[in-house]
Amino acid sequence: MALDKAARKPIRDGLLAGALEDLDQVSLYGSHCPSCGETSLGANDVCPNCGGASVSRTPLSRSGTLWTYTVVRHKPPGNYQGPDPFKPFGLGLVELPDGIRVLSPIDAPPEQLRIGMPLQFHPYVLRTDEGGAEIVAFSFQPVA
């Protein structure tokens, strides 16, 4: 049976905005609260800051800068889906102009990581689930 591209799913419900068959158009979802002005990650029904229920969903910017980072030097425990054998990788908070910092793997050589470096959103197919759907995950990459 041929894979149905529409069967792509986000790695977490409500995390990704845009049609998943065209990854160039996909971004992270945010939820903007008009009461307190905060934007939270994902498609939320309630503002996690003030509890306001009139939040509106908005695609977040695909460009940001590295606010802080670490290099993970040991294979994370549990069902980690990264490269096997394990390779140390960057993990950081990416500040977006929407007023939010998002935790993300940083797809760059660890020695190149610097606070303030420009980064762009990179959605990709991580794996195929048991039903044949492609699971879409994300990282941030240095601007080419």
Binding site: I11, T68, Y69, V72, P76, P77, G78, N79, Q81, L91
Partner: peptide, 15 residues
């Protein structure tokens, strides 16, 4: 966990 965000020391290190 799948994306490797599950190492507690990673959070302290970013601070």
């Amino acid at each position: 966990i799948e994306l490797g965000m599950s190492l507690n020391p990673g959070y302290w290190s970013m601070r």
